[in-house]
């Protein structure tokens, strides 16, 4: 009888450690910043218009973040319009990022995510991109940089005074996610 009680107690104690089913995350605040450099210019374009949703299920998390290409602002409307033109932003108006990582990493300080980025009519994949995680209550703040380049998305590098921008266009991500509910 004692053993039966012990087994039941063990099972009851172990239950909370098990995943409780899919959990959902919603993007509540974000800053996406692309950085462009050329021999004479250093430019940052910022967007706060991203929306996102994440679902963690079966030990895997799938997060989706999207932002309108035209929502990135660099402080110069002429440059922003040229950016939309160069990246075919009217024909492909959204930049869509799908991130995939093990659910257990949410509790660690670093997430290594596999990313699929749809931008300028092309899809690029980035493996093991590190993002720093800070959790506070039911919110987590994720920061990191997507090491994107112009050639990844096959668009012609814009130039100014005959000098093309550098191929690297890293995108810094600062996103706050809220755990909405357990399904």
């Amino acid at each position: 009888m004692k053993l039966k009680i012990l087994a039941a107690a063990f099972l009851l104690a172990a239950l909370p450690a098990f995943p409780q089913g899919p959990s959902q995350w919603a993007l509540v605040q974000s800053t996406l910043t692309y950085h462009v450099s050329s021999p004479i210019h250093q430019v940052d374009g910022v967007s706060h218009a991203a929306k996102g949703k994440g679902v963690c299920e079966a030990g895997q998390c799938n997060f989706l973040v999207a932002a309108p290409v035209k929502s990135f602002q660099s402080g110069d409307s002429n440059r922003d319009l040229h950016m939309i033109e160069a990246t075919r932003g009217a024909a492909n108006p959204m930049v869509v990022v799908r991130a995939h990582f093990p659910e257990a990493q949410i509790k660690s300080s670093t997430i290594y995510a596999g990313l699929q980025v749809q931008f300028a009519g092309q899809t690029a994949h980035y493996a093991h991109v590190p993002f720093q995680v800070k959790t506070q209550g039911n919110e987590m703040r994720i920061t990191g940089t997507v090491p994107s380049t112009c050639s990844d998305f096959r668009f012609q590098r814009p130039s100014f005074f005959g000098m093309s921008i550098n191929n690297d266009i890293p995108v810094h991500v600062d996103a706050t996610w809220r755990n909405m509910k357990k399904k």
Binding site: G59, S108, A127, H128, R154
Partner: peptide
Amino acid sequence: RAQSSAKVPEKTPAKQTPASSSSSVPNAPT
């Protein structure tokens, strides 16, 4: 699965070139 996937891949960021299929890409969204 959750337990097995808890192992954090301690690799340096590796970038993939654009690909039409994600099946061959490690750690790519499935």
